[in-house]
Amino acid sequence: MLQALPDVQAGVLRSDQPKSFEACRNAAGTGFGPLNLSSVSQRSSRGVAPGAAVCSVTNEGSVAMAVIEHIDQATTGVTRSLSVTGTLHVWSKKP
């Protein structure tokens, strides 16, 4: 389950949206409810896919953008594992 901590501004930039300071800051204000990452349909409907980004405004006013580059889901017996890799960008209060 992926979810923002209480009192944290977070949101998703879909893969077709620009990955900029302004776009990320605006997306962070849209909210981010709990997301079951192991559910492909939930990920798809929420826009969490390679090329998308999870954006957040830090408690110090900086903007953080985690660009999703790869999502890998594997099942071994009864154990499921999921990994998400990407690049983290952080802008100070002013771009």
Score class of each variant (00 low, 15 high):
residue 1 M to C: 11
residue 3 Q to F: 12
residue 3 Q to D: 13
residue 5 L to Q: 14
residue 5 L to G: 11
residue 7 D to C: 08
residue 10 A to Q: 11
residue 10 A to W: 05
residue 13 L to T: 06
residue 16 D to K: 11
residue 18 P to H: 11
residue 19 K to Y: 05
residue 19 K to S: 13
residue 23 A to Q: 06
residue 24 C to S: 11
residue 26 N to G: 01
residue 27 A to V: 07
residue 27 A to F: 10
residue 28 A to T: 08
residue 29 G to K: 13
residue 29 G to H: 10
residue 30 T to Q: 15
residue 33 G to F: 01
residue 36 N to R: 09
residue 37 L to H: 02
residue 37 L to P: 07
residue 39 S to F: 04
residue 39 S to Y: 02
residue 40 V to K: 09
residue 43 R to W: 00
residue 44 S to R: 05
residue 44 S to F: 06
residue 46 R to F: 07
residue 46 R to L: 12
residue 47 G to L: 05
residue 48 V to P: 00
residue 48 V to R: 02
residue 49 A to P: 13
residue 50 P to H: 01
residue 52 A to H: 01
residue 55 C to W: 00
residue 62 S to N: 11
residue 62 S to F: 02
residue 62 S to G: 08
residue 64 A to I: 01
residue 65 M to A: 07
residue 68 I to T: 13
residue 71 I to T: 07
residue 71 I to R: 12
residue 72 D to T: 09
residue 74 A to M: 07
residue 75 T to M: 11
residue 77 G to A: 13
residue 77 G to L: 06
residue 80 R to A: 08
residue 81 S to L: 07
residue 82 L to C: 07
residue 86 G to L: 12
residue 87 T to C: 02
residue 87 T to Y: 00
residue 88 L to E: 07
residue 89 H to L: 10
residue 89 H to C: 06
residue 90 V to Y: 05
residue 92 S to I: 03
residue 93 K to I: 05
residue 94 K to H: 15
residue 95 P to R: 14
residue 95 P to Q: 15
